[in-house]
Amino acid sequence: MSEFDWKRRHFMSAAAAAAGVVLAPGVTLYGIAAKAREADVPVTSETRWGLLIDVNRCSDGCDACVSACNEENGIEGHGRPATDAQWIRKVQLRDPRTGIEKHFPVMCQHCAEPPCVDVCPTGASFKRADGIVLVDKHICIGCRYCMMACPYKARSFIHENVSEQRPYAPRGKGTVESCTMCVHRVDAGAVPACVEACGERGNGAMLFGDLNDPDSEISQRIATYATRRIRADLGVDPGVWYQNL
């Protein structure tokens, strides 16, 4: 077996080269760790991926992040909002006294202490070493305890047969799913689709990066500006931070 000459194709290295070419001097990566992981190296807890969302930049009516997420992960609704899958949604808050309104996206908050993981009877709901909270759909039995446990209403159940899936984002009836922080992109060294779309078509309100690296853009911003997390009082230590909320 070990003698077998398997002709390796180098998708990953080709992608890494593409990233290297455009890395002109003085241009820093948009919230991404410079050290790209090799395809055969497992993730470690040295990194903790997180998001920072500047609520002041996020505007009413813009759904660049939501549509990019749906496009990337092949999520299509059936015109039934109560049961259609939703990985990211725009939330609108209004202070009744002042009338001031805030708009911002809410997705899986990628908690360090995720309640969805605590309640899962099969181990399908799990936290990857680098902090990304996922459903292993191969083990998920569709019981939906995690949906009940999530304080952020971040998970969806797939009620109907799915076809025409993206090859890198398998999904199918009878399992629970939620924002994967575009794990397939992150593993290849790219930022999540919502962050990219917010920068390109939206208002540049989203930043992705390594919360464990004190020099990362996201850590620097969190250390400099007043930020908060939604329902921090629950003690679940979310990985999604909000500025100006």
Binding site: F11, A14, A15, A18, A19, G20, V21, V22, L23, A24, V27, L29, Y30, I32, K137, N161, V162, E164, Q165, R166, P167, Y168, P170, R171, G172, K173, T175, R185, A188, G189, A190, V191, A193, E196, G199, E200
Partner: peptide, 24 residues
Amino acid sequence: QCHASKPDGSDQAGLARSLAVAAG
């Protein structure tokens, strides 16, 4: 039921573009 059963040529092209955007 979950995995795409047909190849998708746009897959790698899309990601390469995203990497370029991310870096630039």
